[in-house]
Amino acid sequence: MKRDLISVEDLSPAQIREFIDLAGRIEALPAAGRCRLLEGRLLGVLFYEPSTRTRLSFEAAMLRLGGRTIGFSEVAGTSVAKGESLADTIRTVEQYCDAIVIRHPREGAARLAAEVSRLPVINAGDGANQHPTQTLLDLYTLQHLFGRIDGLRIALVGDLKYSRTVHSLVHALARFAGVEFLFVSPESLRLPEYVRDAAERPVAARETTSLDEAVRTCDVVYMTRIQRERFPDPLEYEKVKDSYRLDRAALANAPAHLRVMHPLPRVTEIAPDVDATPHAAYFAQVGYGLAMRQAILSLLLGGLP
């Protein structure tokens, strides 16, 4: 049976663990061994909307494992722009390659692609719904930074209402024992109740509007971007935007082991002067993302170390 990666909600804790362990094993391989894992394999990279970071990460992961990629990074000029259905595009592309990565603005597109295709399908983001490889790389980053995920105290900061990164991460982290959350957001961007309700276990969490409490008491501060267009009242945005901005001074009271994560790209929510502190983990996170995507490709394509 082929295996797809469409939604973190499909993954059991054991399967999440499998991806994390495999990423670790692949990172530990000598480069000479790693670059043979997917030799001769071809990945179809279908991006129905641009997302340069995610696409580069998948392409780098495939190339580094010895495979190759084909695909498109936007629909302009493709048969899709001429009105071809998603199902037809998938049935065409699957004639060429061994697995498909899809990014699509419509929610559920990756699930539909996986149903249509006999190949493994990886969801690289479907509208506001899921981006499971981001969630897995976040988990892998935590594992790497702390040697564990159980029992961590994690602050999620910023736009908790609309951020799918945050929603998926809460859902996934709630499966680990003893994880505690601190939800830090402006009043109008609080985490929706249904996200907590959907978690498998009761979520140990507190809500606050204070970034300072997060910095002083948590192991991880996970920052997200607050978008101006999320505020019905621009004045309200002006009032809150600076309270969710992390700079070196704001980290003065942080414990030494505190790590700051961010799904990137950042705009103003993390000041550049944080980059050189030992707390900054967001660029390392990109590197762990590469390892995680290598693990996903190697597991789904059957090129295990």
């Binding site: 419509r106 559920g108 719904n129």
Partner: peptide, 29 residues
């Protein structure tokens, strides 16, 4: 939801909570 845009695609909803009679779309979730 993709099912509102892709010609000929089926739809599917699963019951997730019998008490509140809540269903989940198999596609957009």
């Amino acid at each position: 939801c993709i099912t509102n845009h892709e010609r000929g695609s089926g739809t599917c909803f699963h019951l997730v909570d019998r008490e509140t009679r809540t269903f989940r779309c198999n596609y957009c979730e």
